[in-house]
Amino acid sequence: MIPLYVDDIEVGHLRNLETMGMTTFTVSAGIAVVHGIPLCIMLAPGVEYTVQFSEHKIPVRVEFSGQVIAMALGTMQVNLGHLPPDQEIVRMAPWSAEPGVMPETSSGTVVQINTALGALAAHYAATPGHGEGAQQIVDGARQALYAWEASLEAFARLTLDAARRAAETLDGQVAEEATLPFAGTLIASPSVTPSQFWHEVAVTLAAGWMPHGTASKMQAAIDGMKMQAALGVVMGSSLTVAEAKYALGFADEADPVDMTSSGYEVLADDLLRHVPGASGVKVLCPHPGCRGTASLRASIIGLNDTHGWSRERIADWLDSLHEQGIVDLTVQFDE
């Protein structure tokens, strides 16, 4: 039993909870923002967990109980298939914008693909200094992940099957989104072998993390590759650490990715600190079909990286938020 305590949860897609008056429901996967870090928490398949909402608004205290097998940065899906159709909560992944379309596939299985990499990435993302709660989650996930190795092959098959079902169901709807970086999700082709499958996972996750990745995240990706390669051995995969590093662009003989910061992230965050009206504000992603809810910072990054918006278009959207009175984006210059 691993209780998970998180400070916040992305409830933008769970807004129906309020109207439904629900305080308890079961999930198979969930995303939570732990000390500002979005973590996708995946729970053991086939087991139900009770999530207790102590209140219906952000911030909300959530308790997961049960065996956590992994977590990852990225998107999420929540299994609410047990709910009557008229009470279905909008599915969580960016590409699953329409409620009531495919509740049977909103099972969290797609994000389960991220297992090993996610656990280690979360570990690195959560440290240092992000609090005991995050570390508790990470430790629990790692322990459970190791314990899970004994049945890894079976789990891999389950994951592959789930991905296949998702791919078949979603078909072209997700094809474009699935190739986008930063999504953190992968729809595996039904034809891939386990080796190819994990390789694709590696590439996809790398694509997701590297654009705005810090050195620690990159290191997490490398270490995740080692874990992934180890898992690959168990699964009979031919993927090696070297191959994984190559996939990430970290081949020893190649020109390595610059691990040093350009300082632009620092400049950007310095600017945001001088836009007090943006602090703590969460907005709906304006990209058509995307119902993501995130901080203004994450939203701008997502529009820039994931949705490919021009910076001018992003600026226009920001102006519209300001002029509608949603967010005060006035920059405060120090005296």
Binding site: Y264, L271, I301, R311, I314, D319
Partner: peptide, 30 residues
């Protein structure tokens, strides 16, 4: 001045980048 104004200003001398960027490449926030 707003956040959007600064993004436009910085964008005038940089090219868009998916990532924080470096040199003359920068994302919106950068």
């Amino acid at each position: 001045p707003r956040l959007s104004d600064l993004i436009r200003m910085g964008s005038a001398v940089t090219t868009q980048y998916k990532g924080w960027g470096a040199g003359e490449q920068a994302c919106a926030l950068a």
